[in-house]
Design a protein around this nucleic acid. Structure first.
Ligand code: MN
Ligand code: MN
Ligand code: ZN
Ligand code: ZN
Lengths: 147, 147
DNA sequence: GTTACAATTGAAACAAGTTATCAATAAGCA
DNA sequence: TGCTTATTGATAACTTGTTTCAATTGTAAC
């Protein structure tokens, strides 16, 4: 789990300025476990940086996603929401109960992806694996009553 | 590969009416290998059913996706495009060269998903695996010059 | 074939989400 | 501290998706 300070270093190292807007967006994402859409991030970000504008939020999210510091999460009605991220490739669990998003490493997946590439003669450049279901906490809370 | 006739049966079996709008959308999707957005599907669908309206295209796509006859494909700038589909779960290859979308069966993936569920104590309900890269055809055409 | 009825449609108006513009600002550097 | 330029953000434009509701059409019963 990268700290905010480390994330800021990623920004700087990539040659981008460490601006109040970008830090605000990064901070908002760091303070939640779930997914947030641009409007929510903007509202929350204004408590840190009151002048924050909608447009900057969109621009920051796009940049942060490129750098692997944020991730656009695929939802049933579009992918308008983002979660914090620590890697560029997408391997994550989305809890349908509490909305929490959890990244996970992908050892087995990378092997599988490589194998699929050979099988279908396809040169894989990126891969996205998203699992939806119920997290441990929500399973316990439900007592197994979840459909 | 399900035929159009079989797809129509899926619609009917699920209790939905086989309307000109739905058949038009299904046909347009069947006639391409790639992904199409709603506007494009609407335009193409009007050659089959001139009265076809935008709204019906959105509604048809949502329904067809539910039935596993179409799939919303996750793109870099949102997921506004659809491809034909034969299953409800998402395992597919998206070619960045020609735009072709290819579904594939998921034996190994299902095992992996099950294992991940145990490892993270997460009850998986749905999974999405999307690989992006270059298909065999585009690899040959490029002669290996692709980045 | 005709009739009855609910599911479905589609034009129009609306709402939401996203991007272009461009003068003003502030981040990094000397 | 001042210089330079990337970045910002208000506004306006645009694109995408949804609501509404009277008209239509698919289906099954007659
Ligand atoms: Mn990986
Ligand atoms: Mn599967
Ligand atoms: Zn949960
Ligand atoms: Zn998506």
């Amino acid at each position: 789990m990268r700290t905010l300070e480390q994330q800021v270093q990623v920004l700087r190292a990539a040659g981008y300025r460490v601006t109040q807007s970008r830090v605000a967006v990064l901070t908002v994402l760091a303070e939640t476990d779930g997914v947030l859409d641009a409007a929510t991030i903007c509202a929350a970000g204004r408590e840190l940086h009151p002048k924050l504008g909608r447009v900057s939020v969109y621009r920051a999210l796009e940049l942060l996603a490129e750098l692997g510091l944020a991730r656009r999460v695929h939802g049933a009605n579009g992918c308008r929401s983002y979660a914090r991220a620590n890697w560029q490739e997408g391997h994550y669990l989305v809890c349908q109960g509490c909305g929490q998003v959890q990244e996970f490493p992908c050892d087995g997946l990378d092997r599988l992806v490589e194998q699929l590439g050979r099988e279908y003669r396809f040169a894989v450049r990126h891969h996205l694996l998203q699992l939806e279901g119920l997290c441990a906490g929500c399973l316990d809370a439900d007592g197994g009553s979840a459909s």
